[in-house]
Design a protein around this nucleic acid. Sequence first.
DNA 1: GTCCTTCACTGACGCGCGCAAGCAAGCCGC
DNA 2: GCGGCTTGCTTGCGCGCGTCAGTGAAGGAC
Lengths: 327, 327
Amino acid sequence: MTRPAKRTTSADVAREAGVSRATVSYVLNNRPGQSIPEATRRRILEVAERLEYRPHGTARSLAAGRSDIVLLSVPDLPIGASISRFTEELAAALAENGLALVTHLASARGRPLPDVCATVGATAVTGFTPFPAETVRALQRAGAEVILPLTAPDETEPMLPVGRLQADHLISRGHRRLGYALPAHPRFTAMTGERLHGVERSCATAGLPAPVTATVGLDPESAASAVDLWTAAQVTGVCAFNDETAVAVLAGARARGLTVPTDLAVIGVDDIPVAPVVTPPLTTVRFDLHAVARRRAELIVAGLTGSPAPPAPTAAAGTELVTRSST
Amino acid sequence: MTRPAKRTTSADVAREAGVSRATVSYVLNNRPGQSIPEATRRRILEVAERLEYRPHGTARSLAAGRSDIVLLSVPDLPIGASISRFTEELAAALAENGLALVTHLASARGRPLPDVCATVGATAVTGFTPFPAETVRALQRAGAEVILPLTAPDETEPMLPVGRLQADHLISRGHRRLGYALPAHPRFTAMTGERLHGVERSCATAGLPAPVTATVGLDPESAASAVDLWTAAQVTGVCAFNDETAVAVLAGARARGLTVPTDLAVIGVDDIPVAPVVTPPLTTVRFDLHAVARRRAELIVAGLTGSPAPPAPTAAAGTELVTRSST
DNA sequence: GTCCTTCACTGACGCGCGCAAGCAAGCCGC
DNA sequence: GCGGCTTGCTTGCGCGCGTCAGTGAAGGAC
């Protein structure tokens, strides 16, 4: 709620420095192929500094035909902490390349993604899962040049190693029958598959039966029922979809008089802040979101500049076991 | 990584509909004071639909001198879950008014806020705490028209009721000496003051001594030391800055052989997902971030349109006690 | 003296849009 | 028949910027 307060334009700088706008533009973007004597260059830079000139991104985008805005489509409404952190890491990584991130909640009642893409003038669009072909086309018509993830080979199943790491850890501890705790909230359904798949693979590799899955809500009763199920199936180790679910399993075990980890071992994913201070401290798999976000940012920048994509990191990079007392 | 794929402009629609660009603009923005026969109107709308025309936000912003972008300055790097949720709620609430939110991590190594404001062409800038006067001026020069929060009366201490609610609950349970658990991570320091202040006020009102503060890190040892401090001071009830800290206090109490809530009562803030499944289930204060974000969005929209600000909600609205077994 | 090249710039266009002003046609009152 | 009013448009400007084509002056080659 303040006055418009006329902003300084490159014309102001040009006038003050006694040159034309074009020269100012060349200097400030230090465009190659232009011969500008050091004296002029310094003078322009000095004036720009003094007038606090900042190029108007909107106008620049219009002229250049491309903006510095990346649109992130976030699946549902209330999100887990790790996704939020991914968002922030991505924003930070993009910011280092002069790109701004705008997040769009893809709820049913909200505006469709291509609409938003057009109105903010985004040149790149990202999401957690690949977009349907029709959406991709609509986005392109809306001005998006880079759309990720596509179904590129290195992007297919980034979460699979997480499940493998969980299962391998339990198996190495001698557990022969594993359980898998699925989260109750529907917003996770898109992500559960991969992690569970990783656990199944490890079981198969070790010649063990497939994990016994159970849905665990965030209340003690729900968790206790799941524990009953696992006890009946002689499960001794449980991989949980995430740490919240794991903590619920901990509560369920306690409700049934089981001690962790001797009667039942539990391992989570995420290493949430409370993981070290629950009872017993939770063994978990930490996922290096920083690295994932960074890589995503690199891919976007590469796509925008037309440079080749950076090499893919090894599959399990950034996935780390944090051993505590629950296993 | 796809082709530019020329976008449809309003000129395309105009040509196809056999009218001028201005007419298209008038119809699509259904501008009052223009008399356009229903036939023409329908024809233009139909063509726009058919060509999948979406106005180019960048150009619109340039022409109108104002963008539909709101910039949110987020304090430090890794953020608590509740702040992330606020961000998302705000984005959703703004999206309903056709505004897009871009978040900027105000880290030291990042670009300064006014820079970002200019490059994304934001018309409104928000943050969690009021901006220093100098920053406000720089933002205005960068094109920001609305800057919140200012030190408006209704925005000053939104978190104070949270502390009051915590303390009042413990006092009503008969506790006469309270402790306050401060988080160890420096990123919270800007926010601890208000909540602690609320607790202090309630203590003063009830004629009790000021709360005994202790810093509690997210590890059992740190929490145990704090518990020792409180035990020595005959504290029987602890208000924690947030749920994570509260869970740590729970661990500290257990480490010292105290039972919760009989020996030591604990109350948190946020109602994080694991709150119902820790031992014992955590009593906490839930903060209606949805309402806060909504109100913030309303204030921004009001500021942008020049309409009067909506009435302030009552101070404690949206703050709710969730009673479980830890008190 | 003429021609060519390099240097150091400048003029002007266009990106897609909102909006002020203008303008032809039709109609009305007198 | 004429001035004035409404209706239904159109023409044209400008937002701030990137960028291309051009241009005058200086310097060198012959």
